[in-house]
């Protein structure tokens, strides 16, 4: 794939992700109706629980619990797990897989792979006579994979049922200053605006090309485009400041408050908290 095509696909993916998130978050399911503060507290609480669990069985039960929440939130399970499983496979399984061998994790070899005439020692490294997958190693890989899958699915469950600006605003419960939340929200909006601009640049370049560009030329073009985006962001910064001052900005950042929590929010909050406590102690 040429640098132009990979650039278009990269920027296209960013815009698509934002659009999918926006569209899914505006649907009406169980999780969609809960107050964003409850959802963010649930996310942090459960991600900490996932990171504290030391056995495979509790991780599987948490995975099933998240599956249930995803299903009752009327998210498309196939599309949801199509996004979660590859991330779990790459960041959980693939990265951890070499640690299943007895060269990294000592233990009972259950699947021998290579057999040498004797063991070898190089500096601080030891290569055993038989290299193979250990029971302890495979259990470690399974644990890490499940942990990654659970954490990613929890994050996506919240992301696909809550608008990004609501998630960020809900961080107020952790006393995150309004100024930080404002910076994150503004950045998120401008990422999509600028990503579209850069995607258009790549498309314009591609439409003018008859043949592949030499690498040196391509690198110069990219450096020029990045510099252009730098100037564009600076220019936009000036415009935003002028607009803020023009609307009477008084140097105090204050995000609007939340709606009052209803009985459904409290019930859901209590249920999720209670479930979390059970997972924590089991």
């Amino acid at each position: 794939m040429s640098f132009i095509d990979s650039g278009i696909s990269h920027f296209g993916r960013v815009i698509k992700t934002g659009y999918i998130q926006w569209e899914l978050a505006s649907k009406d399911g169980f999780f969609h109706r809960i107050d964003a503060r409850i959802k963010v507290l649930f996310l942090i609480f459960f991600i900490i629980i996932v990171s504290l669990k030391k056995e495979i069985v509790p991780e599987i039960i948490i995975a099933l619990f998240v599956f249930g929440l995803t299903a009752i939130s009327r998210l498309n399970l196939f599309n949801f797990y199509k996004k979660v499983i590859p991330l779990g496979f790459i960041f959980g399984f693939l990265i951890a897989l070499p640690s299943a061998f007895n060269v990294i994790t000592k233990g009972e070899v259950i699947l021998p792979v290579i057999h040498f005439s004797r063991s070898y020692d190089f500096w601080i490294y030891h290569v055993p006579e038989t290299i193979g997958i250990t029971r302890e190693g495979i259990s470690g890989v399974a644990m890490l994979t499940l942990r990654v899958v659970n954490s990613v699915s929890l994050s996506f469950l919240i992301l696909y049922t809550t608008s990004f600006s609501e998630i960020i605003r809900a961080l107020k419960v952790f006393r995150v200053p309004d100024a930080i939340l404002m910076i994150i929200t503004l950045t998120y909006k401008y990422i999509f605006i600028f990503a579209k601009t850069v995607e258009d640049m790549h498309l314009a370049k591609k439409s003018r090309m008859l043949d592949e560009v030499a690498n040196t030329e391509a690198r110069k073009w990219i450096a020029g485009r990045i510099a252009f985006m730098f100037k564009k962001t600076q220019q936009r910064c000036e415009e935003v400041v002028k607009a803020m001052l023009g609307r009477g900005f008084s140097d105090t950042i204050k995000l609007y408050g939340f709606r009052k929590m209803n009985s459904m929010d409290w019930t859901a909050g209590f249920f999720l908290f209670f479930a979390g406590v059970i997972f924590l102690w089991s």
Binding site: M1, S6, G7, A179, L186, A195, C237, V241, D251
Partner: peptide, 29 residues
Amino acid sequence: AKYIPYLAMASAFSFLIQMFNIPIPGGTT
């Protein structure tokens, strides 16, 4: 008052830099 838009635009620019694929020797990006 300028620090919020300034940091937001710097962040957006920082995100964009990571999105540019650059051809590197060896035929990959």
